[in-house]
């Protein structure tokens, strides 16, 4: 009985101490936090970078773009990974906290619109996509398919992908537009869930990162303009900017990068860093703009 009590109170104090010591230990390393889309990519960069620079340690965690940006503003991370732009409100908060936030484009993610392999629809314009995802178009026969209700799939709101698709496809680039995902849209928690659902359901449509496309689903060619040109999603098409649904992946730092943070950023933007982008199934930045 006595020992039990001792053990319990011991654990209680440990519970208080561990977070404290954790915070102390973290000072010597670079904290990277944010977008779940980018967490694996960040990890790959960090591993390669640490292999070359053993004195620097990096810790990469996910949680979502918003979580990363909030952490940056609170000063609990050095680099925020984001798959969407910082919002005006967040810029304001950062300024209030005395930060001089810098934004860096580190890679590109092309989004593929996918349907069931048996679906006869081959191409869709942004107008049609917007109509489908906002619920104005509800039957496949309105866009040249079978007479069948459309099952619309999206990533959930915790995903930068969700926001990007909303602002650039549903709202056709007008970021503050009135369009919204239809209430009946299924919000799935992961890209893999969208792939699974599309492969099982012949009336489904969804969007996924290019790296997730598999033979179980069919990609649809997209066009920004009515009437084309329609482009199938591919890395090449994303790099030469002919494919219209591609978004930048971003790093944010609280100040102009210095020391090891700058070294890491330079590494990410180097040829070797961009090679890693490609192996992780994202699209490299390509030639300097």
């Amino acid at each position: 009985m006595k020992t039990k009590v001792m053990v319990c109170s011991f654990l209680f104090f440990i519970g208080i101490l561990v977070p404290l010591t954790g915070a102390i230990a973290a000072e010597g390393s670079i904290q990277i936090k944010g977008s779940d889309t980018m967490v694996n990519l960040g990890q790959a960069w960090a591993e390669e970078f640490m292999a070359e620079n053993s004195q620097v340690s990096l810790a990469v965690t996910g949680g979502g773009s918003g979580t990363g940006i909030a952490a940056l503003i609170n000063g609990t991370c050095d680099i925020a990974e984001a798959s969407r732009d910082m919002k005006p409100q967040e810029w304001e908060q950062a300024k209030k906290s005395g930060h001089d936030v810098h934004e860096f484009k580190v890679a590109v993610d092309a989004l593929a619109v996918v349907v069931h392999p048996s679906n006869p629809v081959k191409e869709l314009t942004f107008d049609q996509l917007s109509g489908i995802f906002t619920g104005k178009i509800i039957n496949w026969n309105e866009v040249g398919g079978k007479d069948q209700k459309i099952l619309v799939l999206s990533r959930d709101r915790n995903s930068g992908t969700h926001v990007y698709f909303l602002e650039h496809v549903l709202r056709k680039g007008n970021e503050k537009g009135p369009e919204q995902y239809a209430p009946a849209t299924l919000m799935l928690p992961s890209t893999q869930a969208i792939i699974d659902e599309v492969s099982q359901s012949d009336s489904a449509i969804g969007y996924v990162g290019l790296g997730y496309v598999s033979p179980k689903v069919k990609t649809v060619a997209a066009s920004k303009m009515n009437g084309g040109p329609f482009v199938q999603p591919s890395k090449a098409a994303a790099m030469d900017k002919t494919y219209p649904i591609a978004r930048p992946l971003l790093f944010y730092t609280a100040q102009a990068p210095q020391g090891s943070v700058k070294a890491f950023l330079d590494f990410v933007l180097s040829a070797k860093g961009q090679e890693i982008v490609e192996t992780m199934d994202f699209v490299p930045l390509g030639k300097k703009e």
Partner: peptide, 15 residues
């Protein structure tokens, strides 16, 4: 519950 879990990560603090 799913709403909270799915949306907390991306929301702007203080919005």
């Amino acid at each position: 519950t799913a709403t909270i879990a799915a949306e907390m990560g991306e929301t702007v603090r203080g919005s």
